[in-house]
Write a protein that binds this DNA or RNA. Structure first.
Length: 919
RNA sequence: GGGCGCUUAGCUCAGCCGGUUCAGAGCGCCUGCCUUACAAGCAGGAGGUCGGGGGUUCGAAUCCCUCAGCGCCCACCA
């Protein structure tokens, strides 16, 4: 120890250099040889790759801190712990950002710039800002293997994407076709079902009247369809309802349920579609719910998925009425053409009203799908797209969770995952974007050929006709089509190299439930499909970081917290500790963005406490040689045996919590052991020994135990607060003869050490603690100054306890300023304060000048009352026949012991009190 | 329409496969301390009929039912 440590931890001073050192020394790098040659057991986490253009926010802070905890812990356990970092090209999101910038800077659109130049611009942008978030992760201590940083558009990963596309196509699981997809008119692309988020909104449900043709009306009346109405001009009509009235311009039919008795006669007849001059047929289809509304539904095959299915079954025409920008096209009557969908809606409603064909409108709350990237209302649209057939992929993924091959933490997500897989729908993977993996499909344009080629390598000519007139599909793939391969594409799959052999399958996935379907489930599917194994065994889903009001943190609300600012002001350890301590099982984390001090002070205080315990340890130990624990084993004192015992259970408890993904539990146990047992008690207990007041040997033993325990404590705390622990650990003197681990980062994780468990020592220290706290409490009660020594008389202490307390006299003096402890009668020692300890020992504090007899009497009375209530409770139980006969014997036994103890304590206090009153 | 989560101290949350003098932690509050590790601290305290109601049980914060409030997810009811 050369440099003196200041009383306050300055994180800024230590964190950067320590991180840099770890990185320079290659501590975060894990080569495959560690597994393949040295036979170390791997432990692998792949990072949920953040959007390449993202900046670090608190959600990342939490997510990556948790991952780092697991990685550091496993690394210390000797595993070949590998954390693969990287970023996602995030197709739509990134393209949007660049498009916006382009608009701001030059007013151009991507079409003005052209595809190639635009993509080039995105690359430039991504290279400029890209990966900034990864640098930011270093500030919170993320010990990723930076040599393995990947990007989902890297050549290697593109290779994987292409291989997967081709393989799935070969298996018949990729197909192209015209279906209704979710279309974002702003982004100009198709979306998957998952990318269209239903947002509850207030809308209107409109009821429209469709007149029957005269032929139909005739037949209808004959069949007695009583829900028909009659217009003023005598025409009969039926009523349909919709929340999107503009789509009626694209209606090609009206459907009823085949078994609906009301409409049996209508099927096959026609109605006049208002505003269009077209007539459309009435068809029967099972999908229609006779209970809903009139039991008749308008059918717009090109703009509604159900209607599309009906049309396929019934042979209705499909009429697209919208442009890609969601404006009405030339398929609609002249006067409605060229309107955006919302204007078209108004116009149609107005026109219908005018013609008396609007039966009414009413407020209607329903889910409106919106683009998850730009929030624009998504339009269901008939479109030619590429899809992945998901059922066959879903089956192994489903079996995996059912068999326990993959496990969710918390477990309740299992059901959510399984239900999604059970109802899985095909995945629309083509996007009409420019930024992403180009679809590896080429079309031959040669006259009369029409060959479609799905290729691993870019072809130069048509495989069928040899023509060079081939064209690649202009679309790119959904971002998630590369993300789902992440757990093996980062290891160079499809190449079967060492990395893949060493590190696949991985172990733990740490992410937020929001992307359970987008990403987690799909990774599992890809894992089975392409590797035959799941990508990880355990899926830890943590909560969302929210503000004090429980709102999600977002840019638009301005309620975010910048982790870098937190690191700056409080330190990375403080940030980590704070979020980890709040990382309850599946609960969200609330942080007040307006009061960072309040939010992060607990973390800062904890790190500072560690710092100061370290200072004390270093100062206590000094420069002299320290003996190894084994060398002092025969001379351990009770406090030593106690703290070693506690250390053992803390190690076991923390390990268990981590294994069970109970992060906050681990933090809690670490906190309790370090702050409560070690700092509050052990350090205080050994102060007199450290000062040499109890002989050289006692000092040597205390120093040895102190160094040992502090070393292990730092190891236990390291995954949580890596910086302060490492800084201190570097300065701990090492016991003579022991081999010092190279770094705390790789120091072996403490075992539970059952041999150190010492019930007797724990019992004794518990007694000592009770004596100390009770004495302190009485002193405080009667205003005995903290400087003043006090005498204590113990009545009824058994011989061994007397001996113990005599031995511990220096400790008692240190902890409660107890000047002397006497044993024996408390009679005749004048006025004082009394308490009964758990073991039935009477504690008497002679305080002649200070104790007010009346007050003492009241205090005792209260105590007696409390004990009587407890006694009463115990007796009530014990006198209950049922309890005694049905409760387990040990529980009854415990209750009896409690009763006896309460009774004993109560009696002693009573006696004391009556004497007090009498004397 | 289904499914899930939450409701415990003034605030944020633990505890919840029933039984440790089970009601806990941090923050806040009150009292006393700048005691040579730490005032970002130490010591002592106040504060909750565990959302309401019902049930199961010898025994319920913990299990079941129900109601209320808050939040989330899924779903093609036009």
């Amino acid at each position: 120890m050369s440099d003196a440590l200041s009383p306050r931890l300055d994180p800024a001073e230590i964190e950067g250099p320590l991180y840099a050192r770890g990185r320079e020394e290659g501590r975060f790098h894990t080569p495959a040889s560690l597994v393949l040659e040295e036979g170390r057991e791997p432990y692998v986490i792949v990072i949920p790759p953040p959007n390449v253009t993202a900046v670090l926010h608190m959600g990342h802070g939490l997510n990556n801190t948790v991952q780092d905890v697991f990685i550091r812990w496993r690394r210390m356990q000797g595993r070949a712990a590998l954390w693969v970092p990287g970023t996602d090209h995030a197709g739509i999101a990134t393209q949007n950002v660049v498009e916006r910038r382009l608009a701001d800077e030059t007013g151009e659109t991507r079409f003005d710039v052209g595809r190639e130049a635009f993509v080039q611009k995105v690359w430039e942008f991504v290279e400029g800002t890209g990966g900034a978030i990864l640098d930011q992760l270093q500030a919170i201590g993320a010990s990723c293997d930076w040599e393995r940083t990947r990007f989902t558009l890297d050549p290697g990963l593109s290779q994987a994407v292409r291989e997967v596309f081709v393989r799935l196509h070969e298996r018949g699981l990729i197909y192209r076709g015209e279906y209704i997809i979710n279309w974002c008119p702003r982004c100009g692309t198709a979306l998957s079902n998952e990318e269209a988020e239903g947002v509850e909104s207030d809308g209107e449900l409109h009821h429209l009247r469709y007149p029957l043709t005269s032929v139909a009306a005739e037949a209808a009346r004959a069949s007695g369809a009583e829900t028909l109405g009659q217009l003023e001009d005598g025409r009969w009509y039926l009523t349909v309802s919709t929340t999107r009235p503009e789509t009626m311009l694209g209606d090609t039919g009206v459907a009823v349920h085949p078994d609906d008795p009301r409409y049996q006669g209508l099927v096959g007849l026609e109605v006049e579609l208002p505003l269009t001059g077209r007539t459309i047929p009435i068809v029967a289809d099972d999908w229609v719910d006779p209970e809903f509304g009139t039991g008749m539904v308008k059918v717009t095959p090109a703009h509604d998925p159900n209607d599309f299915e009906i049309a396929k079954r019934t042979g209705l025409e499909v009429l697209n009425i919208l442009t890609p920008e969601a404006s009405t096209n030339e398929a609609v009557p002249q006067r409605f053409r060229g309107l955006n969908r919302f204007d078209a809606r108004k116009a149609v409603v107005a026109a219908l009203r005018e013609e008396g064909l609007l039966a009414g409108s009413e407020p209607h709350r329903h889910g409106v799908p919106r683009c998850y990237r730009c929030d624009t209302v998504v339009e269901p649209r008939l479109s030619d797209q590429w899809f992945v057939k998901m059922k066959p992929l879903a089956e192994p993924a489903l079996a995996a969770s059912r068999s326990g091959e993959i496990r969710f933490h918390p477990d309740r997500w299992t059901k959510v995952y399984e239900e999604w897989l059970e109802n899985i729908r095909d995945w629309c993977i083509s996007r009409q974007l420019w930024w992403g993996h180009r679809i590896p499909v080429w079309y031959c344009r040669a006259e009369g050929c029409g060959e479609v080629m799905v290729e691993r390598e870019d072809p130069t000519k048509c495989r069928a006709c040899g023509s060079a007139e081939i064209e690649q599909d202009p679309d790119v793939l959904d971002t998630w089509f590369s993300s789902w391969l992440w757990p093996f594409s980062v290891f160079d799959w499809p190449e079967e190299g060492d990395d893949l052999r060493a590190f696949y399958p991985g172990h733990t996935l740490v992410t937020a439930p929001e992307i359970l379907f987008f990403w987690v489930a799909r990774m599992v599917m890809a894992g089975y499909e392409f590797r035959g194994k799941p990508p990880f065994r355990d899926i830890f889903l943590h909560g969302t970081v929210r503000d004090a009001q429980g709102r999600k943190m977002s840019k638009s609300l301005g309620n975010g917290i910048d982790p870098l600012e937190v690191v700056d002001r409080f330190g990375a350890d403080a940030l980590r500790y704070t979020v980890l301590s709040m990382c309850g099982v599946g609960t969200d984390i609330h942080l007040d963005h307006e009061d960072l001090e309040a939010a992060f002070a607990p973390g800062r205080n904890f790190a500072n406490k560690v710092w100061n315990a370290g200072r004390f340890t270093l100062m206590s130990v000094g420069e002299d040689e320290v003996e190894p624990l084994d060398a002092v084993a025969d001379d351990l004192e009770v406090a030593d045996r106690w703290i070693l015992s506690r250390l053992g259970s803390a190690s076991a408890g923390i390990t268990d919590s981590l294994e069970r993904f109970r992060i906050h539990d681990a933090v809690d146990r670490a906190h309790h052991f370090f702050w409560g047992d070690f700092a509050d008690w052990y350090l205080e207990l050994i102060k007199s020994r450290i000062r040499g007041e109890e002989g050289e040997r006692s000092r040597a033993v205390a120093r040895a135990v102190l160094v040992h325990v502090f070393d292990r404590t730092l190891r236990l705390l390291h995954p949580l607060v890596p910086f302060v622990t490492e800084h201190l650990w570097d300065r701990i003197p090492w016991p003579r003869g022991g081999e010092r681990p190279e770094r705390l980062l790789v120091a072996p994780w403490p075992s539970s050490d059952p041999e150190r468990a010492d019930g007797a020592a724990e019992e004794r220290i518990a007694r000592l603690q009770e004596l100390v706290t009770t004495t302190r409490s009485l002193r405080k009660e009667y205003g005995v100054g903290e400087g003043a020594e006090v005498e204590v008389v113990l009545k009824g202490a058994e011989a061994s306890m007397q001996e113990f307390f005599r031995d511990e006299a220096p400790r008692l003096a240190q902890l409660a300023r107890i000047g002397s402890v006497e044993f024996g009668e408390t009679e005749g020692r004048g006025v004082g304060a009394t308490a009964i300890l758990t073991a039935g020992v009477e504690l008497f504090l002679p305080l002649a000048d200070l104790v007010d007899l009346e007050r003492e009497g009241e205090r005792l009375a209260e105590e007696i009352e409390r004990l009587e209530a407890q006694l009463e409770g115990a007796r009530r139980k014990l006198s209950n026949e049922q309890f005694v006969s049905k409760a387990p014997a040990e529980v009854v036994e415990k209750e009896r012991a409690k009763e006896a103890s309460f009774l004993d304590q109560r009696n002693k206090l009573r006696e004391k009190r009556s004497r007090l009153a009498g004397g």
